[in-house]
């Protein structure tokens, strides 16, 4: 009875966005200069990195023969010029024109992701790669068909034998792709140069945006944490009141997980439009405005989602800072582009 009366008051207030729980206490904002990014790439012991394996992974990454209709490669949806995202498409198109329901994320620094896919439920690149290779609306390959097709291509048969000592299988295709993906490293943005001591690397607007980003007022840094600009945690960001795609709840079946998606990295974010899990926000400004408004009413919304009260100029400054996370050398790195 008491609980029911309490709900009568609280639910409408929360739905109207009039009353939100106070943001939880978090670690204080870091000094951006402390965010030096150079770290050793974690390599799993069962998939040691070798130049030959990385090169094989690169060939596979750009090869549409890995898909059922022979027209879709990993690179079809993870295009280098868009920081390995899908270049303006809200959702990607797979074999036979089948459409997915989610926006292809950037592969920038994917070696450091602790969780993969938008729900964050895949723990390592070797397993994640199996998903697109076999998914009905992506590349739609059966393990046997993939092994057979690659075995019939002499250069692949030879390369797999050299790298893995066995013919192609779905598993070693995934291992080679993971090895290549671990080389997709991007740490040469204006922000990185600023962190390294170049005060002129950031424009005045970007610098103001940086101060906001790492402040309690702008409050971006609690989720977009550290040099990778993500903590890999799933959150509901109040994108919708009713989510057409339920996110993490698709796996857990729990009401409290409806609308939760993994926090994405912001590195190269200016190259990866459109935004959010469904590609529903076309520009960075739209995204920042969404957070500035405090999102849509949603009972699962993260407590940090609340109206920020930023001015138009401050929104522009934040966008300028996000644009300073662009690493143009990364997208032109010949070692990451299609093999000749």
């Amino acid at each position: 009875m008491h609980a029911g009366r309490w709900l009568l008051w609280v639910v409408p207030l929360v739905l109207l966005g009039l009353e939100r729980p106070a943001p939880p206490s978090h670690a204080p904002a870091p000094d951006p200069r402390a965010l030096r990014a150079a770290r050793a790439v974690p390599i799993p012991p069962d998939n040691p990195q070798t130049p030959a394996k990385v090169e094989l992974g690169r060939r596979l990454f750009y090869d549409p023969r890995l898909s059922l209709d022979g027209r879709v490669a990993c690179a079809s949806c993870h295009r280098p010029e868009f920081a390995f995202s899908d270049g303006g498409k809200p959702v990607s198109v797979g074999v036979f024109g089948r459409k997915g329901s989610r926006n292809a994320p950037t592969l920038t620094n994917v070696a450091f992701r602790r969780r993969l896919f938008w729900e964050g439920r895949s723990p390592r690149l070797e397993l994640q790669a199996v998903g697109p290779l076999t998914a009905h609306h992506e590349m739609a390959m059966e393990p046997e068909a993939l092994a057979q097709r690659l075995s019939s291509i002499p250069e692949y048969a030879r390369a797999f034998q050299e790298v893995f000592g066995e013919p192609p299988t779905l598993k070693n295709v995934a291992f080679a792709l993971a090895a290549f993906e671990r080389t997709l490293l991007s740490y040469d943005s204006p922000f990185d140069r600023f962190v390294a001591g170049d005060d002129s690397a950031l424009s005045p607007a970007a610098r103001r945006g940086m101060e906001l980003f790492f402040s309690e007022r702008g409050d971006c840094f609690h989720c977009h944490v550290g040099p990778e600009f993500t903590d890999d945690e799933p959150r509901n960001t109040g994108l919708y009141t009713v989510y057409p795609d339920v996110g993490l709840a698709r796996i857990t079946g729990k009401d409290e997980d409806v609308g939760k998606f993994k926090t994405p990295t912001l590195r190269n974010v200016a190259l990866t439009a459109p935004y959010m899990h469904d590609g529903s926000r076309k520009t960075l400004r739209e995204v920042v405005e969404h957070y500035n408004r405090g999102g849509e009413p949603n009972l699962n919304a993260d407590p940090l989602i609340r109206p920020l009260g930023l001015s138009e100029r401050e929104v522009d400054d934040l966008v300028a800072f996000l644009e300073s996370l662009t690493d143009t050398r990364f997208i032109a790195n010949p070692a990451l582009l299609p093999p000749r």
Partner: peptide, 22 residues
Amino acid sequence: QDAATQEFPLGVNSGMYWAWNP
């Protein structure tokens, strides 16, 4: 368990591994 280390009939070559849902 880590499907990348499991042998048939488990493992990723089984065609039964659910990459997005461990």
